[in-house]
């Protein structure tokens, strides 16, 4: 399997002439692309749902551009349609986003030397997709410089595609009834499977994944996705305990 960068150089010879940062930027975008395409139907469904729930175009586009968090946006418009009070919606969204805090904490070590401004801006674009791609790069090339350009490429692409897909969904929503029942979410599921599976190497990794899988199914009816958070933390603990007992001296 040739690397995307190699293929890009093959197809567009001028990319060899790009400077290092530009190349990292495009590489970040390119490596996020499969996940972006998988998230695209989600944006369409969100836009369509927002439309059928009676939100205006400005509110829909405003939410996608300022909040930029798929799961939170879905929950928010669902709760909004049910007439839920504003503080409850905000609290729910906050709890869902604790997941992103784990992502951010995971990357802490790698962003410590970035200027404050760069960190403040790039943090806004921290999504499942960009985190998955960035942490995959850190896994494969821990010492390679230019991470922030790679991150920026991934983030900007994800952002523009998300905006585009929600707007498209809003527009299509009025024309294609029942768009949200098409099972478009399967793209996201298989994309995540493709990201997680290669990361399973040690026994502790497999145990962590197994616990996360089973526990999240046992706790799926806990309120406000708290089961998701609980299962993640439980699985993290199991992974850690096993990795410790697996090593002889540390």
């Amino acid at each position: 399997m040739r690397s995307p960068l190699f293929m890009m150089g093959r197809c567009f010879p001028e990319t060899y002439l790009m400077n290092y940062r530009t190349r990292q930027f495009w590489l970040g975008a390119l490596e996020t692309l499969p996940l972006i395409l998988a998230a695209f139907p989600f944006g369409i469904v969100f836009g369509a749902l927002a439309n059928s729930n009676g939100l205006t175009f400005a509110i829909t586009a405003g939410m996608s551009s300022m909040v930029f968090a798929g799961a939170s946006q879905f929950i928010a418009i669902t709760l909004l349609a049910n007439g839920t009070a504003l503080p409850v919606i905000v609290l729910t969204v906050f709890i869902i986003n604790l997941r992103q805090m784990l992502y951010s904490a995971n990357l802490m070590h790698h962003v410590a030397h970035w200027p404050r401004f760069v960190r403040a801006v790039l943090a806004f674009w921290l999504t499942d997709e960009t985190f998955a791609t960035v942490s995959d790069r850190i896994n494969r090339h821990p010492e390679e410089p230019g991470l922030r350009w790679f991150y920026l490429g991934s983030a900007l692409f994800m952002y523009s595609f998300w905006l585009f897909s929600t707007i498209l969904g809003y527009t299509l929503g009025s024309q294609i009834p029942g768009l949200s029942d098409w099972g478009l979410d399967v793209a996201m599921i298989v994309a995540l499977v493709g990201i997680v599976t290669p990361a399973l190497k040690l026994r502790a990794d497999w145990a962590c994944a197994a616990v996360a899988f089973i526990s999240s199914l046992l706790t799926f009816d806990w309120p406000q996705q708290s089961g998701l958070l609980f299962s993640s933390i439980l699985a993290i603990c199991v992974g850690m305990l096993l990795s410790r007992s697996g090593k002889t001296n540390e």
Partner: peptide, 26 residues
């Protein structure tokens, strides 16, 4: 961060993404 917490964070991608997959698919 305490070293224990840092090592715990290594498992974030696997734990969180697997939990999402499980709920979304099952």
């Amino acid at each position: 961060l305490p070293q224990t917490l840092e090592r715990a964070l290594d498992y974030v991608p696997i734990a969180v993404l697997t939990a999402i997959i499980a709920q979304a698919s099952m």
